[in-house]
């Protein structure tokens, strides 16, 4: 094999733009805290995608100007947001009925690991975590019509995050449909992971070398 050629990983804004590109008008979408939050910045307002937040906010708009902060209007990440025309508030049980009742078209979450069978681990890194914080992750993963994950392809120590079986405590089983990483876009199918896009200059072999589970090419 020849020497690995230089490749250019997708930047965070590129990843967010790539996810945003795949969200059609009319979808109700929940963006998880962390990397996925940025996706909203890449959906143009004229494409009417309706963003939901767990704390009872449906129809969220972008962050407010500093002098226009509304102290009663926050998202699940406890950041100030705005409300679009057509937005509405509800209480927590109704908000989670939207999630658990299968009304959301899409949820995008960050993750520590995704397995080739669609299992996701994103809330605790050890069985012995002193006080793990689950928030709404398990509801979102089990309840949304489709679950996509946005994450780095490998952990900070270089270990793969696309794995055969998750070693961290699970958030949900068989839930993930697609993964967007800084190196690739990968569908979770009955065959396992199917690569549908790769960072420029990256070879399939290079991608496989950074992935624990077996990758398949689309087609």
């Amino acid at each position: 094999m020849s020497e690995t050629v230089a490749f250019k990983p997708f930047s965070r804004p590129q990843m967010a733009a790539r996810v945003a590109q795949d969200i059609p008008e009319g979808w109700y979408v929940n963006l998880g805290i962390g990397i996925p939050t940025a996706v909203a910045d890449h959906v143009p307002l004229e494409r009417e995608v309706i963003f939901h937040s767990e704390n009872g906010v449906l129809g969220m708009g972008p962050a407010p100007e500093k002098d226009k902060i509304e102290p009663w209007l926050i998202n699940a990440g406890k950041q100030y947001v705005t409300m679009r025309a057509g937005g509405s508030f509800c209480h927590h049980a109704d908000s989670f009925s939207m999630i658990r009742g299968g009304h959301l078209d899409l949820c995008v979450l960050g993750a520590f690991q995704v397995a080739e069978n669609g299992d996701i681990a994103n809330w605790a890194t050890s069985e012995n975590d002193t006080a793990p914080a689950v928030g709404g992750a398990m509801d979102l993963a089990a309840g949304a019509k489709r679950l996509w994950v946005m994450m780095e392809h490998t952990a900070k120590d270089g270990s793969p995050k696309l794995v055969q079986r998750c070693t961290y405590p699970l958030t949900a089983v068989g839930a993930v449909k697609r993964v967007y990483t800084n190196l690739a876009v990968v569908d979770v199918t009955e065959r396992g992971f199917v690569v549908i896009d790769m960072a420029p200059g990256l070879s399939f072999e290079d991608l496989q070398a950074r992935t624990d589970a077996k990758l398949h090419l689309a087609g």
Binding site: H92, R100, G136, V173
Partner: peptide
């Protein structure tokens, strides 16, 4: 889980002692 927390309280308010949910299946 946050939705289970909210639903457990709504159930209490509605006189429902027990309910079933997919949230948390296959997890600890």
């Amino acid at each position: 889980p946050q939705g289970t927390l909210a639903e457990r309280m709504r159930a209490a308010g509605a006189g429902v002692p027990l309910f079933f949910t997919a949230t948390g299946v296959g997890t600890k």
